[in-house]
Nucleic acid binder design. Sequence first.
RNA 1: AGGCGUGUAGCUCAGUGGGAGAGCACUACCCUGACACGGUAGUGGUCAAGAGUUCAAAUCUCUUCACGCCUACCA
Length: 903
Amino acid sequence: MPDPAESITKNFRFDEAEARIYGGWERAGLFRADPEAPGEPFVIVIPPPNVTGNLHMGHALDNTLQDMLTRYHRMKGDNTLWMPGTDHAGIATQAVVERQLAKEGISRVELGREGFLERVWRWKEEYGGRIIGQLKRLGASCDWSRERFTMDPGLSRAVRETFCTLYEEGLLYRGDYVTNWCPSCLTAISDIEVEHEDRDDSLYHIVYEGVGGAPSLTVATTRPETLFGDTAVAVHPEDGRFPAGEFKVRVPFTGREIPVIRDPYVEREFGTGALKVTPAHDANDFRLGQRHGLPTVVCIDRRGALTAEAGPYAGLDRFEARKRILADLESRGQLAKTEPLRHAVGVCYRCRTVIEPLLSLQWFVRTAPLAEAASASVRDGRTALVPRSWERTFFDWMDNIRDWCVSRQLWWGHQIPAWYCPGCGRTHVLREDPSACPDCGGRLERDPDVLDTWFSSGLWPFSTLGWPERTPELARYYPTTVLVTGFDIIFFWVARMMMMGLKLMGDVPFRTVVLHPLVRDASGQKMSKSKGNVIDPLTVIDRFGADAFRFALASQAGTARDLKISEDRVAGCSRFVNKLWNAARFALPHLACLAGGGGPPGGGRDCARALLAAPPPPARRLPDRWIRSRLLAVTREAREALEAFAFDRYADLLYHFIWDELCDWYLELAKPPLYGDDPEARREAAANLRLVFCETLALLHPVMPFVTEELYAKIPGASGFLMASAFPEGRDAEGDPAAERSIGVLMDITRAVRTSRADFHVPPGAKVRPKVSSDRPEVAGLVAEYSPLLLKLMGAETLSTALPGEAKPRDAAEQILDWGAVWIPVAGEIDLAAEQARLAKELVELDRDIAQAEAKLRNPGYLAKAPEEVVEETRERLASLRARREGAERSLRLVAGLAEGRG
RNA sequence: AGGCGUGUAGCUCAGUGGGAGAGCACUACCCUGACACGGUAGUGGUCAAGAGUUCAAAUCUCUUCACGCCUACCA
C-alpha cells in the first residue's frame, strides 16, 4: 500500500513553487502569441499600468480576470494574445522625478527641458516597470516579448500620426478657452480630471453701485476675488425686481463700469438673482460672455495669485486675497450679507488643489462626431458592455460630451507636433520635424506643451499592434476580443479608445468590454493610504499564495459594484488550495500503477495535450460512472460561466464540485477498489481517478494556475505543461442519470443514519445496525455492494435490507426517503423529552408544508396555468412530505412509548 | 437636480416567477488509514417597508425609506 505522506509534502509550498513554475512557463515560451498560428484569435490588451505604479488590489483583480480568460482561451486552442505594457503617466511620473530632484536641491527649470527628460528616462529605466515583475508574481501570462510603453518610438509615431490626421480633418483645434487649471500642478486638465467635493462655504452678497443715478445691484458670489475680472452683471430677462432698460454698475475698488445684461441662464431664485459675470475665470461666464460679446479680463494668474488688474491685491494668493477683499468690502459697507452655503468645489484629481478656471490657449479634440460613432457602435452591438447596465451611463456621457482639452503644460509626454512661425504667424502641424517655416522659411517655434496621457492610451489597442504600420499582428489581432477593466475609467479610457479606434482603424477596438467591481476593504471603504486600510496584494501573495488570492478575487467578481476583500477571505480560499493538495496526496500514489501510459516524452504544446486527449478509460463501476457524469455537467457549466464572464459562478461551481463531490464522496467510493486486491478493479479505478483528477486540474487551471500545474506534473503519464493542455470539453457524450440516482441512494442512506445517530445521541464509538427498506429493486444490490464502505462512513456494524412487507421494528427510528426508508435501532439513554419536542415541532412544520402543497393542487388556476412539470413536482413533493409526516408521527409514538415505559 | 446601483442568516454575498441558499462565524460531537487548513450533525432569515400584476412574487411594476457611486452650468 502506498504511503502518501512519504511521497508528497503535507501542504503546497507555494513560496518555493510559484517562481519555479512561472519560470518554466516562460522558458517554454508558452506565453507567446504567433499571428501565423492557426486558431480563432483571442486578444486582450492590458490596461497599461503607470510606470510609476505598484501593484494594488485593482490591478490584482483586473489582471486575475484577464489571466483567467487568457488561460482558458489558450487551453481551448484559440490563437491567444495578451498584450502587456505600461503607461508613461505624464503628471504622475513628472511629479515623482521632480520630488527626487527636490531632494537633491535641483529644480526642473535649472536642468532645462532636455536635461529633465533625460532624468525621467533614466528613472524609468531604473525604477519604472517594477509592476511588471509584480504582475508575474500574480501569474499573469502576458506575451512579455511584446511589452510596449506609451512613449516607445512606435507608439510615439502612432500619436503623431493621430494628431496630424485629426488636425487635417478639423477634429483638433487650438483656441483660447476657459479650462480647468491646477495652480499646483501648473497645467490645464480635462473636465473629467476635475473631481467635485462638497464643501461648506459662504455666499457673499456684494453691492455694486449704479452708474449715473442707476440703481445699485447686489450680486451673490462664492468667489469675491474674481470681481476684478467682472465684465458684466447678469439678471434674468423676466425678473421684475430689476429696472428695465440699459444701465451700468461699478466694480468695487476699481470703479470700472460694466453693463447689466439679461440672460435666461440666470436663476432668479438663487442668491440675489443677480450674477456677476467673469468670463476669464468661469466656464459658464465664458459662454455667457461669448453670447453677449463681453471682453475678458484675467485677474488671477497661473499660480493662483491675483494679477495687476487687482490693484492693491496684486500678487496675493487667491484665498488670502479673498479674506482681505471681504474685510475691505465690509468696511466700505459693500458687503451686504454673508450666508453659509454647501456646494461642490472642483479639485484636481491628483493633488486635490481647488481648480482655478482660467482663460488660456489650449488644444482641443472636437469630440462630438467621434462620440457619436462610439455611441452608435454600442447601440448596434458591435461592442457589448458587460454588464449591460453600463450602457445608459455610457450613452448619457457620450451624448453630452464636451470637447477634450488635450494639451498639458508638462515636459514629460508626447510633445505636440505643432510649430508656430513668428514671421508669418502660421501654425504648422507636421509628421516630420521641420527645419524652417515651409511658407516663409523663417525660424519656427515648437509648441512646448505635451499631450494628455490618455491621448496615447486611447490608441493602445492598435498602436501596440504596430499601427500606423500595416503589420501582420494588426491584421490578425484587431479588433481585440475583450477589454477587462474597472468602471471608473469608462470615460477616461474606454470611451477614448472607442472614439480613436473607430476614427483611425474604421472598426471598434474590442468586441466586449467587461467592467468589473472596484476593490474595497472588508467594510466597503475605498482603500487609501490616509485611511490606513490598504491591503498590499504582494503581502497577501506572500502569505497565502497567488492561487488562493486569485481564487478569492474571482469568486467575488460578479455583477456588483464593490468587491470587498480581506485577508480572512483569502485565508479561506487557501484552505481550498490545501484541500485540493491533500486530495492529490491521496490520489497520486494510487496512480503509480498506471505509469507509462501517458503521451510521448519531451515537452511542448502538442504532447502536453496527450494525457488529456487520450481516449477515456471505461467506466463500468458505479462511482466512476457517477463522477464522470458529474464531471461532464460541471465542465459544461464551467465553460458557460467563463464564456459569460461569470467568474464568481465558475469559481463557486468548481469549489463545490471538488469539495462536496470529488473529495467527500468520490475519493471515499474509490478507496475500496484502490485498496482492494483485485488488480483489474484497481487499474480501472485508478484510470478513472486519473482522468477525473486531470480534467479537474485543467478546469481549475485558469484561476489557480500554480497549484494545478504543480500537481499535474506529479501525475504518472503527464508530460509537458497543464497550461498548454486542452481545456476539457466534456469527454463523455452524455450524462448518466441512473448512476446519479444510485449514488443519491447511497448518500441518502449515509445521511439518514448519521442524522439519527446525532438526533438520538448515539455515542461516536457505538455501532448501530440500520436496515434499509425499499420497493426499488436496485436498492438491495446497492446496499450489498457498498455496505463495507457505508458501514465505515456511518459508523455501523451491519447494514441489511428489509424483506418485502417487513414492518419497522418497534425500537427503531425511521428516516423516510424518496425511494424508501432507513430504520435505525436506537438504544441506551436518550433525552426523550427533547426528542418528543423536536418531533412535535417537525410535525407542525410538515403539516404547514403539506397544507400549502395541498392548497396548490386544489387551486384550479394553478392546475390550469402552471407548467406540467411544475405541477408534477408539487405532487411528488406532497407525496414525499406525507411519507415524512407518517414517519415522524411513528417516531413520535415510538419515543412517547419509550418515555412511558421508562417513566 | 438627473442617472446608476445596493438593501436576503451575526458578517460577506449568490439566487431574478413555482420547495429561502453558500462561505465565514456560532453550538455539540469526532484526530475514522489525503486533509483538525479536516469530518459529522445543528442553531440562525416577515428576503428594507407598502401597494399592485399573477393561479403563484425574494424574483416583475409602482411608491416610500436607507445607504453608496457617477454625472451636472444654481454663481
